[in-house]
Design a protein around this nucleic acid. Structure first.
Length: 265
DNA sequence: ATAAAGTCCTGAAAGC
DNA sequence: TGCTTTCAGGACTTTA
């Protein structure tokens, strides 16, 4: 699930539910989601501290605690949601579920719950240097990328355009569904070598990216609309919502890729 | 049982 | 030849 739009949604959950709230309790129900921090240390460092302004880069979510780095000194809580993570704001009487791995209790008694079926990524507690290390490994956030910059990012790369767009060190935030949707909108075949795109194709990819992201961020996910490619991925005999011809499904860059061979040359 | 919206690592192939 | 880029595969993990 979690691509840029989902993580942006989780950021909003934090801002509306958690901002300036003090953490009164930390329950680690499954330490398998903790990266580089013990349950004990997480508890110790978070309890009594307030949640600061959450920010996002690509699929990463950063929450400075109190006097954290962006405020001046303490730790920053970092989330990566892997494929199945989510962050939810709950009333305490809502029953805790099996995959709720970490529960933060806030000073208004509400819960911030990290739910994650597969524990592929998870939480970290980091300092300024570690934040820099994470962000340095990422390309610019997809929401901030302009047309000329996109051309620069793709230029000279011979790999398939889909796998370049999926590469977080090239551009941060796009995942499998978004890339397929964007390329379908732009009428660009996913296997086209990135450096072979014409200026017009790059412009179309950029416009498609903007539109798809805007709608998806508003929805908090890549919406499975029937007028979108995404709404047809799981059909038994998927057809293109634009031209009605059958869609192709195959591996590109190791990921399942769906496209319309008619519309995307 | 196969595959899943994510990332990391390895070894090997391909390209310049 | 040598360096860089890219790819394929497997690993992590759980469930439909």
């Amino acid at each position: 699930m979690p691509e840029l739009p989902d993580v942006e949604g989780f950021r909003e959950v934090l801002m509306t539910c958690g901002r300036r709230r003090r953490v009164t309790d930390v329950e680690v129900r499954d330490a398998g989601v903790l990266r580089g921090v013990s349950a004990q240390r997480l508890r110790r460092e978070l309890k009594g501290r307030r949640l600061g302004e959450a920010w996002r880069h690509g699929k990463w979510l950063f929450v400075p605690m109190d006097d954290g780095p962006t405020d001046g000194g303490g730790p920053t809580l970092v989330w990566h949601f892997g494929m199945t993570g989510s962050l939810r704001c709950c009333s305490p009487d809502e029953p805790v579920e099996r995959h709720d791995r970490v529960v933060l209790t806030l000073d208004d008694s509400r819960h911030l719950r990290y739910r994650d079926q597969r524990k592929l990524q998870g939480l970290q507690l980091v300092d300024e240097a570690q934040i820099a290390r994470i962000v340095d490994g990422l390309g610019p956030d997809a929401l901030t990328v302009r047309g000329p910059e996109l051309r620069e990012l793709l230029s000279g790369r011979r790999r398939a355009v889909k796998s370049a767009l999926m590469d977080q060190s090239v551009i941060a935030g796009l995942g499998n569904l978004l890339c397929d949707e964007i390329l379908w909108r732009a009428r660009v075949a996913p296997r086209t070598p990135a450096r072979d795109l014409s200026d017009d194709e790059i412009r179309r990819v950029h416009v498609g990216m903007g539109r798809v992201l805007e709608t998806s961020v508003r929805a908090g996910c890549v919406p499975p609309r029937r007028s979108w490619l995404t709404g047809h991925r799981d059909d038994s005999e998927p057809t293109c919502p634009r031209c009605g011809r059958p869609l192709c499904s195959n591996r590109v860059g190791g990921r399942r890729t769906v496209w319309c061979p008619q519309c995307q040359k």
